[in-house]
Write a protein that binds this DNA or RNA. Structure first.
Lengths: 301, 301
DNA sequence: TGCGCCCATAACCTTCGCTTATTGCCTTTG
DNA sequence: CAAAGGCAATAAGCGAAGGTTATGGGCGCA
């Protein structure tokens, strides 16, 4: 059974005769006749009785017709989709991002991107960094947006912007009066932050604390900075996390710069062993534009 | 685009390589390779990038895959249906019936039939007798159940049961007190009945009235006896119609035998120019059983 | 460096789907 | 009643699709 046989069977049922079906399909009458016979011999039963030189659908034909018609329409719809793709009218952008990026940059970047490419579908996978890396390697996503560089043989990364670490606390916290927070300020407070084994940033923070003569004693260890929100709100401590998330947007929280400055990097990574989607460069431009806009806005408030 | 191309595309996506797809489809690797290339060239875009000798799905492939998979499954389901039909596991019984038959015998007969053939689908066409005849001749129905014999060259009919004519009136009609109704009783009443030109029964009734010295003056002429229900209820007259319909079931109506007895025939007709569907005999048995049951029930109430 | 895996190509064959030309059956019509 | 017209089937032939086996080349890995 193939698509052509279905199409021809459907046309004969609809038009009532081989000749009429041949006309509406714009082929010769013998062509239709032969395909029909072939179809019948494959099925093992007649679809039409030949009575007085005319075709009369059998019980079997009536049983098949509804489903055949529906399936054929589905095939037509699929052909349409294939054509639409060929005309570049639809596209697909598969993004892997860690939670802090999703909750900060991404909406703005997608807004800009979709303004210029409204026809592109987006698959967004918000996952822990390790999973993002895995998805990138197996090709389930076109690129990754994370807060630390992905290290793998075929992965190419570009750093988009530095992100200073910040201290996040309740608005009624004594530390909220300070304009910046040092390791000493945090010395006797329960600390909510990345673990020492968290790639890049963990050891770096340990180092900074050590140079100030303070041990970084992480009371509650995070895999994603967003997890800090309810903890800080609930009074479980002060969080030392990335400054990418707009912490001030969350009720009752304030964020203060951490001193000395410690930077994380927003980076975008592609897998060079995979085809780059045509929409990667446009998206990259969107996100860079967004970062420029924000920088400008900060310089000239 | 055809079914085979979809099947092969789907298998490559699922299995991850041309070789694996060829294995699971039980064909040679070059066969799959060639169909894929052909498919891509028809589509006008690549579905896979060839990176270090491996196939990597492109954005376009991801866009197509979900729909292609679904459509292919539908085709498989259709093939299954075709096979099931070939194995005689499903069937179809296309019945044409006039309204009085539909509203009386049919439900009971179908109930019996489906008890023994639950796998057979039924298409029921309730139509005026002339249309039933036409559908039978063009083969749109397998047989016809009507209240008068169909006369046509290739049509073979069997009479199932006689049906006496009855007079139908409101329960508060003076005639309701009688045990049977004669032409004289109806002489001065507006009559709701079949026209004189209605085959068989029209002239026969005219004849009976004439022999009683009464002219049969039809006040409202029916094509189907069921149309009499609202008319009699509304007080527009007395109906002289078939006794097949259970008139007493309709609120406020009663039926009385007409004397002298005039019989119509329930007949079942097939078109001998077509082979009979294999479910005709079983259905015939069902309806005869039903008629026997009813007869027995009447004799021994 | 050699082996194994994977994809592409070549050469060849059969089947499918199409064409035009023609035949035969049946119905319609003058 | 015979001629005309409509419809399906068949014949002969052609190109493309889809299958085979054999072979070659790129890449990763021991």
């Amino acid at each position: 059974m193939n698509a052509r046989q279905l199409e021809i069977f459907r046309a004969i049922m609809r038009d009532g005769s081989v000749t009429a079906a041949a006309n509406s399909l714009a082929v010769s009458q013998p062509a239709v006749s032969k395909v029909l016979h072939h179809f019948e011999s494959q099925l093992g039963y007649q679809l039409f009785e030949r009575i007085s030189g005319r075709l009369v659908p059998t019980m079997e034909a009536h049983l098949l017709y509804d489903d055949a018609d529906r399936v054929f329409r589905e095939i037509e719809a699929l052909k349409n989709l294939a054509r639409t793709i060929a005309e570049r009218k639809v596209g697909l952008l598969r993004i892997g991002a860690s939670a802090p990026v999703t909750y900060s940059l991404l909406a703005g970047a997608l807004l800009k991107f979709r303004a210029e490419h409204p026809q592109v579908k987006v698959h967004l996978h918000t996952l822990p960094k390790a999973d993002v890396e895995e998805q990138l390697l197996i090709g389930e996503i076109d690129f990754a947006l994370t807060l630390s560089t992905i290290q793998a043989p075929t992965v190419r990364s570009e750093i988009l912007a530095p992100v200073p670490m910040m201290a996040v606390m309740r608005h009624d916290d004594p530390l909220a009066d300070k304009t910046e927070i040092t390791p000493h300020d945090l010395a006797d407070r329960p600390l909510i932050s990345y673990g020492s084994t968290t790639a890049d940033i963990g050891p770096e923070l340990d180092n900074v604390f050590e140079q100030s003569g303070v041990k970084r004693d992480v009371s509650i260890q995070l895999s994603s900075s967003l997890g800090a929100i309810p903890l800080v709100s609930g009074g479980l401590g002060v969080a030392l996390v990335d400054g990418l998330v707009k912490w001030g947007n969350f009720e009752g929280l304030v964020a203060r710069p951490f001193s000395p400055t410690v930077l994380m990097d927003i980076s975008i990574s592609t897998n060079s062993a995979r085809p780059v989607t045509r929409f990667f460069r446009p998206f990259l431009k969107s996100i860079k534009d967004l970062l420029n806009d924000e920088e400008t806005a900060q310089v000239q408030p």
